[in-house]
């Protein structure tokens, strides 16, 4: 049993979107811009040329936050959304009724409808693919050329994620909502 988290050194992101491709390839996600488990967000640069504010256009890679207090799990009427033994939020497609309540409730827009099963799908930290094969990295982490992502067990004090969180300042997205995300962004 592990307690998986992901730490993102997001300032290293160069928006190459290799992580998005790797995720689709590894997990067999269907083509289509709105069918995605992970994404890289960016903002339009503020200001007028030549005084453009380049900091405002930084990149923020993201995905399901694997919340410890996940709104999507709370609102699921059939327990199709559940926490697995590694603390990863999963969707049991046999139980999902596609009421879409979890999609409305997720504060991160991390869920979408998978047309293969006609149920809701989301990032699973590659639980069904890489972790199931015994690997200890996710596809997005493995492919990243600038080593933005670090994945591991936060309950293991010697893990790289534990070390990073002990030594670097970090924040979570929309932490004011009390969802306790397990994606940590290094500052």
């Amino acid at each position: 049993m592990a307690n998986y988290v992901m730490v993102l050194d997001y300032k290293n992101c160069i928006n190459c979107k290799a992580c998005e491709i790797a995720c689709k390839e590894e997990n067999g996600i269907l083509l289509g811009a709105d069918k995605h488990r992970i994404w890289v967000g960016s903002n339009n640069p503020k200001g007028e040329w030549p005084n453009l504010d380049i900091v405002s256009a930084s990149f923020l890679p993201s995905q399901c936050q694997q919340c410890e207090n996940a709104p999507c799990e709370d609102v699921c009427p059939t327990h199709a959304t559940y926490y697995d033994e590694n603390g990863v939020v999963q969707v049991d497609s046999d139980k999902c009724i596609l009421c879409s309540y979890c999609m409305v409730a997720c504060p991160y827009d991390a869920r979408y409808v998978d047309d293969r099963t006609t149920t809701v799908d989301k990032c699973t930290f590659c639980s069904d693919t890489r972790l199931a094969r015994g690997e200890v990295t996710t596809a997005c982490q493995n492919t990243c050329p600038t080593k933005v992502r670090t994945f591991g067990d936060i309950d293991d004090p010697d893990s790289e994620v534990s070390e990073l969180l002990r030594t670097r300042e970090h924040f979570s997205l929309k932490s004011n909502l009390g969802t306790k995300p397990k994606l940590f962004y290094l500052t």
Partner: peptide, 26 residues
């Protein structure tokens, strides 16, 4: 509108999501 209404009737009973307002409402 519900994608799988038959599944709903089965799992509403077998694995009820008691924290879900939709479960209570339905």
């Amino acid at each position: 509108e519900i994608g799988h209404p038959v599944t709903m009737m089965i799992y509403n009973v077998l694995t009820p999501g008691l924290t879900s307002a939709i479960w209570w409402m339905g």
